[in-house]
Design a protein around this nucleic acid. Structure first.
Length: 760
DNA sequence: ACAGGGTGT
């Protein structure tokens, strides 16, 4: 149909409508083209208070001319040459070219993630070796930043020889030879293209972090080199330690050590253990502020509660101390993932004058967020960890001591720019007793999704698969049972058509199953909207205690149906207001931001919801539309190589409110909730006479989480929830009201789990 | 009668 498909694809990326005469009042970028044809982005100064979410950011990649590229690359070359990896280039390359698998231990600042891929790229081009290089990263920003940096070092525009691929943003093209991608993305590619035939080298970076997805990739790679890809080169890159485990897994692959380039950090320990960690952290900050040179302080605390407390206390005492003694004024900032993005951004502000920035952070600052100017680290030695209990179908959130590796990583945050100091709020002996490594995530996770991937890939014996870390028989069997119950596996444990569909959807299996059910129940469009909201973490933010009641009141008054049916229906009502009522053009973005702020909703979160919704609508159309070509053909052509599918409000989806307004359409609401019941049959609790709820699976008591719209509504016959987390007690999150008669329907449809428990 | 560590498709 179109010979011009390449340009069509490219342009679809920037499809968003721009109304030049209706520009938003604030927070916008003004893009001019100067006489070189070079894009210039000027940021207009934010004229409002710094409190709103300035997150209309997009990654703008400048298209430079050849001469500009070359000049820039030449300038960067002198810096590259100082990197330890560059100085050992020949020896490293000797190992990499002579071995199929190499484990490379490079400390921070060694330049491994940027230089090694370039060495290989040059080597392959000089030797006319075909194929491209993939470098995986656990996080999106890392993939984007590395690709951008390497492109300029290499002297090309992003997307030509060097590109990146993360969800919703793909800058690769047919000429791309070096691709930085998230490990989630590489797994998607593996599902579509089981032999990874376009690559000759796969580099797994940050392997020491041991995320579930990295571990799974390692398992796939081992199978690949032993079977269909004996030619595939693999490099496992890790920041110190664990080298032996990687090496042994890949048949004793050689290990290379490259020293890093970082500054010395002196460690201090407590003489006596601390009994109040917030108090100890504050005391340390005050002490540093009195005795040490200028430089900011980064404090690691386990969670939001401790952080908010510490911020309040420090800000109170800091001014008093500053007035009475002539020490810098300390300014405290909180940092955790659930914080609104605009408040998160404040930790990057440089404080001017005789002041010292003090950041109280969760583990987010250990790997995901890097703050410059930090010279002192205060380490509580604690973190929070989510542990999945297979038998209970419940996650527990525990505060636990960190590992030695984690303590070193936290320490390192003080030595990025100059020498630093690290104050550990535990004794030398306590440190010695810490485990060397953090327990790999897969050992404490629900593995339903990995198991589905393996089934989709055609793995027969999952228990004895080439697991890098076997999650254990119990976990695998629970995963298989879940999948069987969701209809993804048949009586013989073989993947069903439904299971294939579930594995192709970019959401957790339970939600995939709900979507498929919805496609059979004429409420797909609505369920996609809700599932999209559920797929964004921290969409509904926690209001500050003083505005909590107000915000809850506003949410309740907006969501007429949510008030009765619960959080899933509330999400749909909120989505409809955001998406349909508030308007879509650039001019109304301010209106939408204000609306989000009033309801304590993340504006950035909702923008993500819209993207996910668009992706899900496209995928569902390909999956369920009988007129459509096969999914994998479509997705290979479109999804991997472009950004988002070509969804328009087309006739595959019925117009949502043709006849009735959603909130008045009782039948629709009930069929939506019944769809969710089929994916979350285990997450049902029955109302008891004493107004508590008991789960149908184990009879445990479960409470409605205070963030739920149903928190104050005490009289539901039964509830269904998408998450069951034990913190101070067992809490149900994303709660919906369920009628007992609906459960009867599920029972008659043959869901044994509910049948037994309801009867007993 | 009152609260969630961090990633990814």
């Amino acid at each position: 149909m179109n010979k011009n498909s390449k340009t069509t694809k490219k342009s679809s990326k920037h499809r968003s409508k721009v109304h030049p005469f209706n520009r938003p009042k604030r927070n916008h970028a003004n893009i001019n083209i100067n006489n070189n044809g070079k894009k210039i982005v000027k940021f207009i100064e934010n004229n409002s208070d710094a409190d709103d979410e300035n997150d209309d950011y997009e990654f703008v990649h400048h298209q430079n001319t050849k001469t500009e590229l070359k000049e820039k690359a030449n300038k960067l070359l002198s810096i590259r040459k100082t990197l330890p990896v560059y100085q050992n280039k020949n020896e490293i390359m000797k190992y990499l070219t002579e071995n199929q698998v190499t484990v490379l231990i490079g400390e921070t600042g060694s330049g491994k993630s940027t230089q090694i891929p370039q060495f290989l790229l040059n080597f392959f081009q000089e030797n006319k070796i075909r194929g491209s290089i993939a470098v995986t990263q656990p996080r999106r920003v890392a993939a984007i930043n590395l690709a951008t940096r390497v492109a300029s070092e290499y002297g090309c525009n992003i997307g030509s020889y060097v590109g990146y691929s993360v969800r919703f943003d793909n800058t690769t093209s047919s000429t791309t030879k070096l691709k930085y991608l998230t490990d989630g993305m590489l797994l998607r590619e593996l599902m579509m293209n089981p032999t990874l035939k376009e690559y000759n080298t796969i580099i797994i970076d940050e392997a020491h972090e041991r995320t579930v997805l990295t571990d799974i990739i390692l398992g796939f790679l081992k199978s690949l080199i032993h079977k269909s890809r004996p030619d595939l080169k693999i490099i496992v890159m890790s920041a110190t330690l664990q080298a032996e485990k990687f090496s042994q897994f890949f048949d004793n692959a050689p290990i290379l050590f490259v020293e890093g380039r970082k500054f010395n950090v002196t460690q201090y320990y407590l003489k006596a253990p601390s009994d109040d960690i917030v108090d100890s952290v504050i005391r340390s900050c005050v002490q540093i502020n009195q005795g040490e040179q200028m430089g900011d302080i980064l404090c690691f605390l386990p969670g939001q509660e401790e952080i908010d407390k510490a911020v309040t206390i420090l800000n109170k005492i800091s001014e008093i101390i500053h007035k009475e003694t002539s020490v810098p004024l300390m300014i405290a900032y909180p940092l955790y993932a659930a914080l609104p993005p605009a408040k998160q951004a404040l930790v990057f502000n440089r404080v001017k004058g005789f002041k010292r920035k003090v950041i109280f952070s969760t583990n987010i600052a250990e790997t995901s967020v890097t703050i410059s100017g930090v010279k002192f680290v205060v380490d509580s030695g604690l973190r929070k960890v989510k542990v999945w209990r297979h038998q209970l179908g419940l996650a527990t959130l525990l505060t636990v001591p960190i590992s030695k590796a984690s303590a070193m990583q936290r320490c390192g945050r003080a030595g990025r720019e100059s020498e630093g100091k690290c104050y550990r709020l535990y004794r030398t002996n306590d440190y010695k007793k810490l485990p060397d490594q953090t327990e790999p995530e897969i050992a404490r996770s629900n593995v339903t999704s990995p198991v589905l991937m393996l089934k989709k890939y055609g793995v027969q014996d999952i228990i004895n698969w080439t697991w890098f870390e076997n999650p254990g028989k119990e976990a695998i069997i629970m995963g298989l049972q879940e999948l069987y119950q969701l209809g993804a596996l048949d009586d013989f444990g073989k993947i069903t058509k439904r299971g294939e569909q579930m594995s192709l959807l970019p959401i957790q299996p339970h939600l995939s199953s709900v979507l498929i059910k919805a496609s059979e129940c004429n409420c797909l469009s609505e369920v996609i909207d809700i599932v999209s909201c559920l797929s964004v973490e921290n969409l509904l933010l926690n209001p500050q205690p003083e505005e909590r009641d107000e915000v809850n009141e506003r949410r309740l008054s907006l969501c007429n149906s949510g008030r009765h049916y619960g959080d899933l229906i509330m999400l749909k009502e909120l989505f409809d207001i955001y998406f349909y009522d508030l308007g879509k053009d650039v001019a109304s973005s301010v209106e939408r931001q204000d609306w989000c702020k009033e309801l304590c909703i993340s504006y950035r979160g909702f923008k993500n919801v819209v993207k996910i919704r668009e992706q899900l609508r496209t995928y569902c159309k390909w999956l369920f539309d009988s007129n459509s070509k096969t999914f994998s053909k479509k997705i290979k052509k479109n999804s991997i190589n472009t950004n988002i599918g070509e969804d328009k409000e087309d006739d595959f989806y019925s117009t949502p409110f043709l006849n009735k307004k959603f909130s008045e359409d009782k039948d629709k609401i009930e069929s939506i909730l019944k769809c969710f019941l089929t994916g979350f049959t285990k997450n049902i609790a029955i109302g008891m006479p004493d107004r508590s709820y008991r789960t149908v699976t184990t009879g445990e008591t479960v409470s409605v989480h205070p963030s739920s719209l149903l928190f104050l509504n005490k009289a539901c016959p039964a509830i269904m929830y998408t998450e069951y987390v034990f913190t101070t007690k067992g809490y149900a999150r994303n709660v919906s009201r369920i009628e007992l008669s609906w459960l009867q329907e599920i029972v008659t449809n043959g869901h044994a789990v509910v049948k037994e428990k309801v009867a007993s």
